[in-house]
Design a protein around this nucleic acid. Structure first.
Length: 178
DNA sequence: ATGGGGATCGTCT
DNA sequence: GACGATCCCCATC
């Protein structure tokens, strides 16, 4: 997991193809392969860390490899993996995964939506994996979260502008498996 | 296929 | 007191 100590844009690209899971109370894994990410740093106006450390974003300023969960639009949770050195305020937003494990559980949490729509958005994947503010600060090394290297062959990755932000739109810090 | 608006509340100004 | 790293439903084309 040493690569998580690199800068967020580098990590965001590297994470495409990795597998991200939560461990359920019964021990089973729910999740799939990471297909879309975005990078955020403290020098980036669009980032929560831009204005410094606050109670909400303090995990972003901690060591790499921990989970930063935030609540937005009054109803949605989104999940990040902290990167860089401690104090940097860098993180990678997980925007989409390809669901592979515990499909039935995810369908139940997502109102039986069709499989392609289970985890194809940052708030959707949190809903499917039941990630909430209670998970803020957990490690990606378990027990709650598990991050596994790619098994399949490296895929093609496209870099584009980020989504849903109003400032610093020009940066090509969104990465998508193609 | 595309676009507009509502839901809903924590966080920071 | 304003707004957001969003999603979903409905209208219209």
């Amino acid at each position: 997991m040493d690569f998580l100590e690199n800068n967020a844009p580098t990590v965001a690209k590297s994470l495409i193809g990795w597998k991200f899971f939560v461990r359920e109370p019964d021990g089973s894994l729910t999740g799939g392969m990471i297909t879309e990410t975005e990078a955020y740093t403290s020098e980036d106006v669009a980032s929560h860390s831009f204005r410094g450390k606050t109670p909400r974003n303090e995990v972003m300023f901690g060591p790499a490899g921990h989970i930063y969960v935030y609540f937005t639009y009054g109803m949605h949770w989104c999940v990040n993996i902290v990167t860089g050195d401690s104090g940097d305020g860098q993180a990678v937003l997980l925007r989409a995964i390809q669901p592979t494990h515990n499909l039935a559980t995810m369908r139940q949490r997502r109102a039986n939506r069709p499989d392609p729509e289970l985890t194809n958005g940052p708030a959707k994947l949190c809903q499917a994996l039941a990630i909430t503010g209670q998970d803020n600060g957990q490690s990606v090394d378990g027990p709650r979260f598990i991050l596994k290297p790619p098994t399949a062959k490296q895929q093609n990755i496209m870099a584009t502008k980020r989504i849903g932000i109003s400032q610093d739109k020009h940066r090509l810090w969104r990465f998508i498996a193609t």
